[in-house]
Structure formats: C-alpha cells, structure tokens
Design a protein around this nucleic acid. Structure first.
Length: 593
RNA sequence: GGUCGCAUAGCUCAGCUGGAUAGAGCACCUGCCUUCUAAGCAGGCGGUCCUAGGUUCGAAUCCUAGUGCGAUCACCA
C-alpha cells in the first residue's frame, strides 16, 4: 500500500471518528513549494459531508493523522489545505522497495486480453514523409506504453497496396522509366516509385492544360486526360488479374516494401504482423452480405448496400458499390474481423490514423458493433493532427514533402555539429560517433513529436531546426549520460541492501523520491489515455529534479560512505527510470555524450 | 450549412478526475566550469488562459452562446 492509499484510509477514519460521516474519496495534491509539507489534502470537498469551517476541520483531521499514522510527522493548515509532513523513513523504505528493480513501473502482462495497435499503414506509391513519422512514432509508443501497463500487445499495419494511386506510378514507370530499377539507379525502391508518382502528376497536369486550351472545362479535362484514362484502364486490368499488370504491380510494390523496411529500421520501429488490403476486402464483402441478411444493412434499388446510421445521429454510409465492388469501409470491416480470427486473444484495437478520418472510424466502430462483435466496444481511434509545413500541406504528388530518411539524416548531422563543438568524444571511434549522433538526432526528433498532445496539429518549419536544449530529447539523454559517468566513477558496490533508514534526506533527494513514486501511476494514465506526451513530460520533470540535485548536492563527495552509496544508488535508479520511460517513447539513451 | 477538433507568455508547449499567487523550454538579461560531463544549474523579464454569460465555497479546466483556425460531411482511399 502506498502512502496516498494509507492516508486516504486514515482520513476517512478520521472523518468517521470525529464527525460520524462517510467520506467518498480524498483529494490529494503535491504540496506547493512555498508551504511546508510533503503532501497536501484538500479539505473543501469534505464540506459536503461535514458542515463547518474548513480550517478547523483541517486542524482536527491533521491532529488525527499525527496521532494515528507513524509516518506523519507534522501538519499545518492554510485556508482549506492540510499540508502533511512525512518522515524520511517512509521515503527510505520506498526507495528500498525499488532500488534493485530494473523494470520499475512496468507490469508483466496480467490480462488475458491482448490489444492490437495499428500504425503506419502507408500507400505503396511514395516514400514515407514527416506525416508518417508522426504516425509511426505515436503508434509505436502507444503500443509500448500499453505493453508496460500490463497488457499483451500486437503491432500491426494495413498496407494499402491496391488502387489507382499505385497504377499511376506503374504507368509513369512504363512510359518514362526506361526499365529503371532500384539496383540500376542506386535509389531506394520507395523513392524510385515515388518519383514516378510525381512524374505522372506532371504529365497529367500538362495534358489537362492542353485539353483546356482545346476548349474543355477544367472538370472535363481532369476526367478526360488520356494518361488518367490509361491509369484507370490499368486498374481494371489489375482487378481482372491481367498477368503483365499484376506482375509489374508485384515488382514495384516489392521495391516499395524494401524501402519501407529500411526506413522503419532507420526510425527504430517494428511490426508483429502485416495486413494487405488486397487480402482482406473479400472478407469484408462476406460480412456485408451477412449483415444484409440480419438487417444491419439495407440494399438500394441500384444494388448498392448501405448502413443507416441516422438513429445514431450520423448519415447513411455506403458499404458496397452498386457494381458490387468494395469501398474503403468494406475493407476495414474485413480487416478488423480478419485480425480477430488470426489473434483470438485480442480484445481491443487501437488505430493510429490522422484526424481527417475521425468520421470514418466513428462509423466503422458503430458498424462493427451493429454486426454484433463484442470486441467492437474496445476499439479506439488514436487520432492526431496533421503535420503542416509553413507553405501549407505536404503534397507528395508535387514533391513538396519532408522526407523521413532525409529528416533523420539532418537530425543526426545537427547532433554531429553540436557534438564536435563540445568536443567530448575524442576517444570514440568513427563508428561509435556515428551511432551516437544518430541516437541523439533521433532522440531530438522523437521527443519533439511525442511531447505534444496528438490532437494538436504541428507546424514544422524545416528552416528552424529542432532544439537540442531545454525540454528536448538530448537534454534528457544528456542527463542519463551524466548519471552513467557517475556510476563509472563511483567505486561503491552496486548491490545495495543499504541501511539508509537513519540518513537525513536532503530536500533534493526527497524531491527525487517523490517524483519516482509517481512513475507507475503515470504509465497507467498514459496507457489509459493513449498518451506518450504524459510519459515525455514526466521524464522531463524527473530529469529537471535530477539536474537540480546533481548541481546542488555532491554525490561522490558525500560526507559519509553510506551517504555516498545512497546517492549513487539513487542516481542509478533515476537513470534506470529515464531509460525505462524513454523505452516507451522508442528513444535510446547513450552511455556518454 | 451540419458535425468533430483546437485556441494558455513574443515563439513552442505543460496544466490529471474543477482547488492555494497559471507552469516549463526557446528568445532576451544577470550570475556559476582549478569539485561528479556547462547539451547543465541559480535567478530576472514576460499572461485579458479567444470573447460573453452560467454552474460552484472555488473555473484555464464543467455548461451555453459566439469568434478564429483546421478537418469532415464521395458509389476516393
């Protein structure tokens, strides 16, 4: 039982003993630093069950706690706030309980239901850009957080491998490609294919202009441009299983997958299972006809199938075209069901997809509920805001993007520049340095993206580089590296069943222990709210507290061997906690920097 | 137009289920490297928490209306 739980019971007992009243809950907050005390109980809410002056009630409850709880050493009441002083002994025993655990805060899987987290889910006609980076980082991190909170997690994605977009790249490649391959050009496959997507768009625009010059309206021109018609024809051939088209499709998708793998590896994320739309849309169709029988869907005269959601405050939504072909929704229904078939232990899913699809997922979840799947109650759309450039939206078609691989490289280059200026790594080999620059650069990028609320849109200005100072990834990595440096220098043995109970805690030490105590709860909150930002902000607070401790208290120069051992152990635990927290964000920590 | 989201310091953002005088970082200004890594620490400057009502002992937080920005409302994905 932790301190807060103990106090809660005792406060309730106090209210019962003093006023014969039942308190539902007790409100706690950290004591503000201008007051004395370690934890504060807010008296105001008690006024609902106990009539009287909050200060007087606070005094009485405070006295009761002083008399009945060993670890309460004193109290004071300011207005309606009861500030409690806690003994050092309590904090020492807390520290003993976590001192030798490497995975403090993490729970083993303790739920027989697993969670499937989907992220990335790119189209296969262009390389990954900054928008995908936000998606991938968020999804990966949320998966790690849920795992740490005590659930089994499967990471997955759905690859949008079919459709007109890939035909456009294929067509442009056929026309302008001169048999280029990733091998012949040395280009990453996704980049090569992406270039042809851009080439298609250029040719398309020229044709549109020509048609308009011939007197067609813009709308007509857009529909009748020959190159677009050719792409549409190709799609029809693909769906008919035309051998030449399908084999080109396979080849070019293969190039793209290889390129994606490289980028994922570069970013440091992975997946347990891939799904392809070309595999799951048929299952979706099956369940649409199933739902048609049970009345979940209705068929219109032209043969199209719809789901009537007007009773739920939404519109009618199409789930099958009049020609019987699948739409986006059909595929997603199929994919969800396929996943549960493959992983029967999955009890819920998280979809990491941009907020422009809020409506789509609202509808999808509702339809799955109507189809009667009980896991449909536990679907969550992890919706996030767009990443915009100062010039506006990123447009792959026009080549206006911040490419993921380039961005990572630039971050590493910046880390290298800063490192060289500081010149602390003379004895590192070139390979070690390179790895470190990447760790730092990626750390800066990941932290920058994950520390903000996913719902907010990000305006990314490539000219204003991401910071390496202040509330940043490198700042936290630096603190970790400093701690490792101390541990290397400390000649105290690590295995500490230290008897520190009699040591008087320095204010900074106590602050660190209080902060450490919050970690498990932060993980649970972050998992419940699907919020890496909570982990990022917690880590920042912890690190600030540590730096203040480090700068104000001598660790290796402590007065006694015991005190030194305690401070080293405390530093080590803080370091481990930073490492654990950053693991959930997918950020590595360096031994030196 | 309907629906959804966002709005806090010059800039980027925290602020948990309503609680004390709204917090960080960047930028700007002071100090601190002959002691454990100065990518740091200590401090200063900086606020109409978009506006107006309401609920409450108490509102940045909850409710209503409005303003601004974004998204969405396809037999596209």
């Amino acid at each position: 039982m932790n301190l807060q739980q103990t106090l809660e019971l005792q406060v309730k007992a106090a209210i019962k003993a003093l006023f014969q009243a039942e308190l539902q809950s007790v409100e706690f907050q950290a004591t503000r630093k201008e007051f004395t005390g370690d934890i504060t109980i807010v008296v105001f809410p008690m006024l609902r069950v106990v009539k009287g002056n909050p200060v007087v009630i606070g005094e009485q409850v405070g006295q009761y706690l002083l008399d009945n709880v060993d670890d309460v050493l004193g109290f004071n009441v300011v207005k309606g706030f009861l500030n409690i002083e806690i003994s050092d002994r309590y904090y020492h025993s807390f520290f003993q309980s976590i001192n030798n655990t490497l995975n403090y805060g993490f729970l083993e899987a303790n739920d027989d239901k697993a969670v499937m987290v989907e992220y990335s889910s790119p189209n296969t006609n262009k390389p990954l850009h900054l928008g995908h980076v936000r998606n991938v980082l968020l999804g990966y991190s949320v998966a790690e957080i849920i795992k740490a909170s005590g659930k089994k997690v499967y990471k997955t994605q759905i690859i949008n491998d079919r459709g007109i977009h890939i035909c456009k790249s294929m067509l442009a490649w056929q026309r302008f490609g001169n048999e280029e391959t990733p091998e012949s050009t040395g280009l990453k496959g996704d980049k090569l294919v992406g270039n042809y997507y851009v080439k298609f768009d250029k040719a398309y625009k020229i044709e549109i202009a020509q048609l308009i010059a011939q007197g067609l309206s813009e709308d007509e021109a857009k529909k009748k441009a020959p190159i677009l018609l050719a792409a549409q024809e190709m799609l029809i051939k693909w769906e008919a299983g035309d051998e030449a088209v399908v084999s080109l499709w396979k080849e070019m998708n293969g190039w793209v997958y290889k390129g994606f793998e490289e980028t994922y590896k570069n970013i440091g994320v992975d997946f347990d299972k891939y799904y392809y739309e070309s595999d799951t849309y048929l299952l979706g169709k099956e369940f649409v006809s199933e739902g048609l029988k049970t009345g979940v869907f209705i068929q219109k005269e032209d043969g199209s199938v719809w789901c009537d959601l007007t009773d739920d405050g939404l519109d009618e939504k199409i789930v099958l075209r009049s020609d019987g072909t699948a739409v986006y929704m059909t595929q997603d229904i199929g994919t969800a069901i396929q996943r549960i078939k493959d992983y029967p232990d999955v009890g819920g899913m998280v979809y990491t997809v941009g907020n422009e699809q809020d409506y789509h997922f609202k509808v999808l979840f509702l339809i799955l509920k109507k189809l009667g799947f009980d896991w449909a109650k536990h679907l969550f759309h992890l919706s996030y805001g767009m990443v915009d450039l100062p010039s506006g939206k990123m447009k792959s078609r026009e080549g206006i993007v911040v490419d993921a691989d380039d961005l990572i490289q630039e971050m590493a280059d910046t880390a290298e520049e800063i490192s060289k200026e500081l010149g602390k790594l003379e004895d590192y080999s070139e390979d070690e340095k390179k790895a470190l620059y990447k760790t730092i650069g990626l750390g800066a990028l990941k932290y920058y993206i994950l520390k903000v609320d996913p719902k907010k849109r990000i305006l990314f200005d490539p000219k204003e580089s991401i910071d390496f100072q202040g509330n940043t990834g490198p700042f936290i990595q630096y603190t970790y590296a400093r701690i490792q440096s101390i541990l290397r220098k400390a000649d105290v043995s690590r295995n500490l069943s230290l008897n520190t109970a009699d040591l008087i805690l320095h204010e900074k030490e106590k602050q660190l222990l209080k902060q450490l105590e919050n970690f498990p709860e932060i993980i649970q909150n972050a998992a419940a709210q699907h919020s890496p930002a909570l982990i990022a902000n917690y880590t920042y607070d912890l690190v600030k507290d540590f730096n203040s401790f480090y700068q104000n208290v001598s660790i290796l120069g402590a007065d006694s061997a015991l005190e030194k051992a305690f401070r080293v152990a405390l530093s080590q635990t803080v370091g481990q906690t930073i490492k654990n927290a950053f693991k959930m964000l997918g950020i590595e920590v360096p031994e030196r920097m």
